[in-house]
Design a binder for these strands. Structure first.
Length: 255
DNA sequence: ATGGTCGGGGACCGA
């Protein structure tokens, strides 16, 4: 089973990229973030035509997530219980025998910002929700745009980035809570190039200079992670005409 | 400095 995540920065603009990428990559499950469209604008038919089920949790202008899958998603959730959030950032479903949690974690803007407070409270609600999912499901994959660089090696210039947003201790502590719950960042199970990133700023020729960060992640519970046979970042779509600023991340499981 | 959205100019957001 091939599972992928991609922040597309507007599915309205990027639909052709997504369809073209899916044709060659042939994922079983694709989690999208920042679709930036309401559910009535979501192009479910375009995915249906190429043999996929497609569901979305969207809103106007910002945020929005979607799940595209060969198997039909079931028992879908679009909210954490006991956490009011008008921003559409989660889509959780059973696909096959796996609980899939597609996340668009808040960016936070800067550690001095109110948006950072929101990010930390959102992460707290997420940890609580993960625990409740673990009571019901054995195999869980948590994937998406985490807006957290787990380690210094996930940042092109960690000295310069310091403890700014994406790298601050409180964000990394929240990430550690997920690994403490038994989740494994499957990309790191394999030999990878130094400076492997999934996002590059549109500005200052960042992609050409490989000045990026790795914030798009795929986590699996420990027993499931043992069945992960491959995980790569596909840099190719980032080089296409009018790209998203993120590129797809893939994990292959022997299930 | 770049790109997307909404809207019809320029502010907000992204990481």
């Amino acid at each position: 089973m091939k599972i992928a995540t991609w922040n597309v920065n507007s599915l309205t603009v990027r639909l052709e990229h997504v369809l073209e990428w899916m044709e060659s990559a042939e994922p079983d499950i694709l989690a999208l973030q920042e679709i930036k469209q309401t559910n009535d604008m979501f192009p479910a038919d375009a995915f249906k035509e190429i043999g996929y089920h497609a569901i979305s949790n969207g809103q106007k202008t910002y945020n929005g997530v979607a799940l595209i899958s060969k198997q039909k998603p079931k028992n879908t959730l679009t909210e954490f219980s006991d956490y009011d959030d008008f921003q559409r950032r989660i889509l959780i479903s059973d696909i096959g025998n796996v609980r899939i949690m597609n996340l668009y974690i808040p960016n936070g803007q800067s550690v001095e910002s109110d948006k950072y407070i929101y990010k930390l409270s959102w992460l707290k609600a997420l940890i609580k929700h993960i625990k409740s999912e673990q009571e019901k499901y054995k195999d869980i994959i948590i994937l998406g745009d985490f807006n957290i660089a787990p380690e210094d090696r996930d940042v092109y210039d960690p000295e310069k980035w310091g403890e700014e947003v994406l790298c601050s201790p409180k964000e990394r502590q929240a990430f550690s809570k997920m690994t403490d719950l038994g989740f494994v960042d499957v990309f790191r199970l394999f030999d990878q190039n130094e400076k492997s990133f999934s996002w590059w700023d549109y500005r200052a020729a960042s992609f050409r200079r490989n000045a990026g960060v790795r914030i798009d992640l795929i986590l699996a519970n420990e027993s499931l992670s043992k069945k992960c046979v491959k995980s790569v970042i596909d840099r190719e779509p980032r080089a296409w005409e009018r790209p998203s600023d993120h590129t797809p991340v893939i994990a292959q499981f022997d299930i």
